[in-house]
Simulated scan of single mutants.
Amino acid sequence: MKKIALALLVASVSLMAADGAAAYKKCVSCHGAKAEKKALNKSEIINTWDAAKIEESLKGYKAGTRNVHGMGALMKGQVAAYDDATIKAVAEYITTLK
């Protein structure tokens, strides 16, 4: 039974990473494949942030309460379709891009 539980845990972590990677694809053109770019030469380089900071920022953009460097409207459109699980998956995925 423990082996089955462990296998399910590993599978769910793998799916979460895959979902984060898939969702991040729309971010690549501005933030870079490794999240190493300043988006439109305005943002910070986000691959240096921890997952909590990324998640908080994405939720703020989605809610329309964050507007750093005038990017609020653009980012709100980018994350509008993300649910909380997708935001978390993207945030965790970005932390792997070093």
Rank of each mutant, 00 (worst) to 15 (best):
G70Q: 02
I87K: 09
K59A: 00
A89S: 14
K62C: 05
V68E: 14
T65M: 06
Y82D: 15
A85S: 14
D83W: 06
A81H: 13
V79P: 00
L58N: 07
V90D: 15
V79F: 02
V79D: 02
A85W: 13
T96K: 15
D83V: 14
M75G: 09
V79K: 04
G70F: 07
I87T: 10
V79R: 03
I54W: 03
K88T: 13
Q78T: 04
Y61Q: 01
A81R: 11
N67Y: 04
I54P: 04
I54S: 14
V68N: 03
K88P: 10
E92K: 10
A80V: 01
T96P: 10
Y93M: 13
N67H: 04
Y61R: 00
Y82I: 06
G72T: 04
Y82C: 14
T65E: 04
N67E: 06
A85Q: 08
T95S: 06
I94S: 05
V79M: 07
A81I: 02
T65F: 01
K62A: 08
I54K: 06
V68S: 07
T65H: 09
A73H: 09
D84V: 11
R66Q: 01
E56Q: 11
M71P: 07
D83T: 10
T86A: 07
K76C: 01
Q78R: 12
K62W: 02
D84N: 06
G70L: 12
L74A: 14
Y93A: 11
G70M: 15
T96I: 09
E55T: 09
R66S: 00
T65G: 00
K76Y: 09
S57M: 05
E55N: 15
T86P: 11
T96Q: 15
G60L: 10
D84H: 04
K62F: 03
T95M: 08
M71W: 01
Y61A: 03
G64R: 02
A91H: 02
E55M: 08
T65R: 03
Y93E: 02
G77W: 09
G70R: 12
N67I: 01
E92C: 13
E56C: 01
M75F: 03
A91I: 05
M71Q: 04
G60H: 14
A89D: 13
K59M: 02
T96N: 15
A63L: 11
V68G: 06
T65D: 00
R66F: 01
T86C: 11
G64W: 00
M75T: 00
I87E: 03
L58Q: 06
L97I: 06
Y82F: 15
D84K: 07
V90K: 10
I94C: 11
Y61N: 01
A80Q: 13
T95G: 07
A81Q: 09
T65A: 09
G72L: 05
G72W: 00
G77T: 13
T95V: 11
L74Y: 11
A89Q: 15
A89G: 14
S57A: 09
V90A: 14
L97S: 11
D84C: 15
A81E: 09
Q78M: 10
D84R: 08
